[in-house]
Nucleic acid binder design. Structure first.
Lengths: 149, 149
DNA sequence: CAGTATCCCCCCTGATACTG
DNA sequence: CAGTATCAGGGGGGATACTG
């Protein structure tokens, strides 16, 4: 996360967002967290990430207010890593990535094998883009509905 | 983009997506491309990226079918870099990142200065998440509407 | 289990020079 | 302008060992 040039104060919100969660591991951690992963070891085994990297990434996410520590849900002495509201708000980003990946990155003959993976057991939730006037809804580039507002 | 472990065949669509566009520069290039940037030098001056890195990234994006080369729109002998439909589909990802950045990464007292930036001159297009049954629309975590279909 | 500490390589990245 | 080639450095990232 230490970059030559920080974009944390860039004028563009996209650049700022990427400065915070623009690396590969962070978004995968957040994906797992959204799906309910809470324990250090659970993240590690799910991601296949080295322990040191995982610790560094979790610490960075906590510093940036994306995640926080909470008492373990199972009553053990350890602590869980859970998303803050700021982190939970990233579910739209994850959903957008998931939708794009599903639509663009699979061969048709492997589509079925994918659906049984745990990461696809979540309800599919298509993203809809609302137009600037707030009255027209698009799915990808197709207008799907006009709303009365 | 050369990573120790490739996620290009991962079962999870989020992981696959990140394998393709999960690095910092690629998404910034795509952001610019969505906003209409087409020329090599335009990307370079907009991003402040080294020429070598830009060439490498553009080549990777072309290999992965995100961008393609097209005759220069101004009739010059050079070629433009433009998004393929597959790349244009990433506008939802960019929109999600933009929305999250705008909502979570600005101090209130600097919000105004941001709005005049070129990257914010685009129409604001809030993302809406459609529920699995396709009938309920959410904006962030707030239900905004039920639809007839 | 839940991390921390250390080593070390690879490659990302930037800078510069060069070509067409 | 539009890149390619080459070089130097620094940190990302993995593996392992160690602590509580």
């Amino acid at each position: 996360m230490v970059k030559r040039v920080s974009l944390s104060h860039a004028p563009c919100p996209v650049a700022r967002a990427l400065d915070v969660i623009g690396d590969w591991w962070s978004l995968l951690i957040i994906r797992d967290a959204i799906e309910g992963v809470r324990r250090f070891s659970a993240f590690q085994s799910s991601l296949g990430i080295a322990k040191g990297m995982l610790a560094t990434r979790l610490r960075a996410l906590i510093e940036r207010g994306i995640m926080t520590q909470a008492p373990a849900s199972d009553g053990s002495a350890y602590r869980d890593y859970v998303l803050t509201p700021k982190g939970q708000a990233l579910h739209l980003v994850i959903a957008a990535l998931r939708q794009w990946g599903e639509e663009e990155l699979y061969e048709t003959d492997e589509a079925h094998s994918v659906l049984v993976d745990k990461h696809d057991s979540l309800p599919v939730a298509p993203l809809i883009l609302r137009s600037a006037d707030g009255r027209t809804l698009y799915w990808s580039d197709t207008q799907v509905q006009r709303v009365g507002d």
